[in-house]
Amino acid sequence: MRRKSLGRPYLTIVEELIKFVLSIFLLSVLVFTLSRLAPGDPLYAYYGDRVEKMSMEEQETARERLGLQESIPVQYVRWIKGAVRGDFGISYQYKRDVKEVIAGRLGNTLLLGGLGFIIIFVLALFLGLFCARREDQRADRVVCGIGTLTSCIPDFWLSLLLILVFSVWLRWLPGSGAYSVGAEGSLADRGRHLILPLSVVVLGHLWYYAYLVRNRLLEETRADYVLLARMKGLSGKQVLYRHCLRNALPSYLSMMAIAFPHILGGTYVAETVFSYPGIGTLAYESARYQDYNLLMVVSLLTGSMVILGNLAAKLLNGRIDPRMRLKTGAFKEEAERW
């Protein structure tokens, strides 16, 4: 009875929250266990090559000090006890609090990934509409051809090509880093450093989504309601924008939710190739050098971003599609404005 009186929207929020916490918890167990089972010695992350000069006893003490001697479950319990208090330990590589290490990089990744996501989101819609309006005409075929070509080029290959052309040959743009030494505060400098990695993120993903939009819209143009709309005297273009787009939009949004991890992954690749100081490079380094504490937070952060992206899309979706709105309880029974 009490559950019922809470009402559907609250219930959904509570449900989603529980799901979120559970997923993150499971993810933490998984990453924790796997990272420790993977071959490699975390002492290298901490001491570098000096490990080889250390005696057995010295190594033992070091391990004990880092808490690496106990069994995995014991280590995990200790980790999670700290984690709920906001203490995620120190990074072995950077010898600083993990939170500090990440805080210095998160902005860079959000800038690159966020900009990439927004550009892809808008351009894909635009290109999809452009092609759908000209189905099978020359313009559509040309764009489809170019699109297919760009999406066939692997990200790292494209990155190398761009670096070669724009920073080695033409010397127009920097090929690595997020800013020049001594120009940390300059927006123009940051922008210049963003262009190449951003191009890789966008070019690597754009066509995939634009093509989906195109096909989704064309599917809509075959629907029955299109005939009725045209019988009102609307032109094909008007029907596409006023009717088909509206129907394709909810599924585009949920598609972009699934796109979020995909594009984030692309950001990580671009970061690594361009030595761009972001979460992606950290993810790569921490996994490679058994920097356990750092790896945990990077994984959980990435996981949270993915889940939250999905959730946001679901909520948005529920606002646009009246059928979804009914399901999520956001639908008001009284008459809608028209």
Binding site: D224, L228, G233, E336, W338
Partner: peptide, 25 residues
């Protein structure tokens, strides 16, 4: 034709559930 449709000509369809746009009141 666009000028004739919705002024001189109108049409009623076989399946009203699919003929109406599901996302508009």
């Amino acid at each position: 034709m666009q000028k004739l449709r919705g002024t001189v000509f109108s049409m009623v369809f076989q399946n009203p559930m699919t003929a109406l746009n599901p996302c508009m009141s």
